[in-house]
Amino acid sequence: MLYHCFYGTIASMKWGLRSICEKILKNKGENKLVTFFKDVELFRDFTDEEILNFIESVPISTREYAPGEMVFHEGQGGVSVYFVFEGRVGIYKNYGETDEITLAHLHKGDFFGEISFLRETPRTATVVAMQPTVLLAISQRDIEEFMNNYPHIAYKILKNFAIKLSNDLEKSNKQMENYVKTIHSLSEEVEILKKELNSCKSKLKPSNSREKEE
């Protein structure tokens, strides 16, 4: 009887300690996530409480990738948004083919997958882990559900999505501008070369006719 009482007390103490430890660890994990999400562009202007609300309401899947492992590939279905928690990923067009283009390298705090998330279309690029990487993935429906429940936060999320897309657009525009400038300078060079070629041709023509006469 005494043994059972003693054993019961020890077991309940163990259980109590374990639940306290679990709670502390959970709080620690949540704090870590709050600190992480505060630096993410999508959560710009969010208060700590709003981020905590987000973390508590939305299922977040933690995914680990080895170097070279693919997160998703161009043309694949899927509507999750990914946040780089640790490591680095590369975004590619025509990955593994001769005309492969590197679009960007993303680091801790960056996010991707927003185009398929917003347009519900297949993935527009391939994403590959470049080193041991940890990503946090959130599905579209969970974010939508969260936005339905918290309309004032939804506004901020959509605004930040728009800011991210406009930044990307600005970057693309700058790239395009550079390409156009390069094309212009190249065409100018081509024009100069054409002129030189023509002058060379005209110089060559009289000498050729003299040779024929002789």
Binding site: V58, I60, G77, G78, V79
Partner: peptide, 25 residues
């Protein structure tokens, strides 16, 4: 419910994650 969903998604291999998320939803 959030923890249950996270558990199911976390045990899904990376290559099936996107599909699993869509199916569960």
């Amino acid at each position: 419910s959030k923890q249950f969903k996270e558990f199911f998604l976390n045990i899904t291999p990376n290559r099936y994650y996107e599909m699993a998320a869509v199916i569960i939803d």
